[in-house]
Structures are given as structure tokens and as C-alpha cells.
Simulated assay, not measured.
Amino acid sequence: MSLMHKRIFHHDGVRFFKITSPSIQLPLNQLYPGTINQDTLPDTPFEIPVNSWMVEYRDQLILIDAGISRLGEEQLPVSHNAAPSFFEQLALFGKKAEDISMVILTHLHLDHVGWSTVFENGVWKPAFAGATYYMSRNEVDYLLSDKGIAEGGGDIFKRNVLPLILDNQVRVVSDPRSEIAGGIMYQEYPGHSPGHMIVRFRTQHSEICFCGDIFHSTLQIGNPSLSSSFCRNTVQALTSRKTFLKRAAARGSLVCSAHLDSPSAGFISFSGGGYSWQPLQPDGKTQN
């Protein structure tokens, strides 16, 4: 099976695809700096995958998050591998940018909004000209707050949000829980960022959840109290993570993550008073 075929998944009547960006490289003891047993975490570089997802749902082609752009690669500690570019991967899946009808952003960090726009002829333009983009009101407000601007939010707004507004392609969602299209729920799970959202697709028998940055490695599934150095509010992040894990395990949701290792999709199971991760394989089976 080719590499690209390993990134095509079928589950409960839905076909979806994983699009990768260069991985972020960060030692575990810097990813989880508040860990009690800090000395047990290695200080060697740890690869954090960066995944976007493309979903064929009903009569639409929907993108969940937009990866790291070339500009973002200059600002993040990423690996520079020879993987096909974001749009080359679309082509390898037989898709084009103009096929995308919705772009749903879980939050507005550099590794999730990068290819929402492109720089052409001296201006930033929407990368998906026929799409409606969805983002959280709390995320936009934070980018423009004093704290957000100090963290670079103003630049993200100018590059990745304002061009969408000017082209009338964006829906800024204020409700913490909203059905933004038939069968698609957009729900707030804050902490990693002020308006961090998950996206839930209703399927024939259950649901597929695209969980953004609820966790950055499977360590946080077994130990939800771990919060990453990227989280803005660790108390909120912990509450959101526990709520998400409990719900996903109880409902048998298929979970698709922005940062877990390949295959990056799987199921949360109750295990010994906690939770464990069961990866999904491209053939739809779970890996024990």
C-alpha cells in the first residue's frame, strides 16, 4: 500500500483523507513542562505530527484545519522533510482547491491556519475560493486582544483571517455549540486556546470527531492531567480533555487528531480506571 493510500480512511459510510505538514520538533520535557516527574521525560527532539483532514460528507468536500504554510515553517521548530506540499497532496488524492466547499478551523494557531490563504501578486487571498470558512468568535477576539497581539495574533489576523472577511467567505461562530451544516456540529472545548473547537460529523451509527489540539500525544490520553506548553489555560484544557475523553469513550466516537502519530485516527476506550488509544487502520479495523 502506497503512503498516500495509507492516508485514506473509510468509516461508517464516510471517506476521509489525512493531509500532513512538516512535524513540529520539541523535546517532551518542553512539550509538557509542568510534569511532576520532569526528569523522566527525554530532552531529545520529539516529533509532533501536524495533520489536517479532508472529509467527503454528503455532497460536500470539507477541510478541517489548514496546516503550516511556508511562512509558518519559518516561525515554528519544524522538520523539513521531502513530503509533498499541502496542495500537491490534494492533487494526489484527486482533489483540487476549488473542490473544497467548507474550511472548518478548530482554532487559529500557526499550524492550523497556514494554507487558509495564499500570497499572490503582493496580497493575501483565500486559498479555497469557493469555500465558506468557519472559525470561533472567541478565537478572533483573542487574536486582536492586547495579549493575543503580543503573541503574534495580529499578524495571523492580517494574513489568515482578514482576507477571508474582505472576500465575504467567513462565518465567525459565536455559539459554543452550533450545527453549522446538516450533521456537522461545531463545539467549543476551550483551554488550549480561548475558543478551541472540535468538529463532529454525524454518521450512520455514531460520529467522527476532529478534536484539534485536545491532546498532542497519546501520553495525554493515559494521563489527561498533562497539559502542553502550547495551552493558554491549563485548567480549562484539563477540563476539556477529561470531558472529551469521557464522551468519546462512552459514545464510541472515531477520533481524528491534529497531532497524534500515524494513523492519527482511532478510538478512546475505558481502561483500568482511565483511557487508552486504539488506532484505526485505513481498512477500518482497529489496531490493538
Results as ranks from 00 to 15, higher is better:
Glu88Phe: 09
Tyr189Leu: 15
Asp155Cys: 00
Glu56Phe: 13
Ser253His: 00
Gly182Ala: 11
Asp39Arg: 10
Val172Gln: 06
Trp115Tyr: 15
Thr286Phe: 12
Phe86Ala: 11
Asp175Lys: 12
Pro282Met: 04
Glu207Asn: 13
Ile8Arg: 15
Ile48Tyr: 04
Ser178Ala: 13
Asp175Gly: 03
Thr117Cys: 15
Thr286Arg: 07
Pro42Trp: 02
Gln30Cys: 08
Glu73Gln: 15
Ser52Met: 10
Pro49Phe: 00
Ser257Cys: 09
Asp175Tyr: 12
Val78Thr: 15
Arg200Glu: 15
Thr132Lys: 12
Asn51Ile: 00
Arg200Met: 10
Arg171Phe: 01
Val103Gly: 14
Ser229Ile: 07
Phe270Trp: 00
Gly67Thr: 13
Asn233Trp: 14
Asn288Tyr: 01
Leu28Tyr: 08
Ala248Tyr: 01
Gln25Ala: 13
His10Gln: 13
Asn37Ala: 14
Ala129Met: 09
Arg15Thr: 15
His80Ser: 11
Gly122Thr: 01
Ala237Leu: 03
Val140Arg: 12
Met1Trp: 08
Thr239Trp: 03
Trp124Arg: 07
Ser206Ala: 13
Phe119Trp: 06
Asn168Glu: 14
Asn160Met: 00
His5Ala: 14
His192Thr: 10
Ala250Pro: 00
Phe157Glu: 09
Gly152Ser: 03
Ser178His: 09
Ile19His: 02
Leu71Glu: 10
Leu219Trp: 07
Asn81Leu: 09
Leu238Arg: 06
Phe215Asp: 02
Met197Arg: 15
Ser206Gln: 06
Trp115Leu: 11
Gln169Tyr: 03
Gln236His: 14
Asp43Thr: 05
Leu238His: 08
Gln287Met: 12
Cys211Asp: 11
His5Thr: 12
Ser240Phe: 05
Ser52Ala: 15
His196Ile: 04
Leu3His: 15
Ile8Gly: 07
Ser21Lys: 08
Val255Thr: 01
Asp155Ile: 03
Ser101Asp: 09
Ile221Trp: 02
Met4Cys: 09
Asn223Gln: 09
Ser85Thr: 15
Pro84Asn: 10
Ala91Ile: 05
Pro126Asp: 01
Gly272Ile: 00
Tyr133Trp: 13
Asp43Glu: 08
Gln204Asp: 14
Gln287Leu: 12
Ile214Glu: 08
Ile36Phe: 08
Phe215Val: 08
Glu179Thr: 07
Ile208Trp: 06
Tyr57Asn: 10
Asp111Trp: 09
Ile48Asp: 05
Lys18Asn: 10
Ile268Glu: 01
Arg251Gly: 00
Leu245Trp: 02
Lys125Gly: 10
Tyr186Asp: 14
Phe16Arg: 07
Arg241His: 10
Gln89Pro: 11
Ala237His: 11
Arg159Thr: 03
Pro45Cys: 04
Gly212Cys: 11
Gln60Trp: 04
Asp39Gly: 10
Ser227Asp: 11
Ser174Phe: 01
Phe210Leu: 03
Val199Ala: 09
Ser23Arg: 11
Ser145Thr: 06
Ile19Met: 04
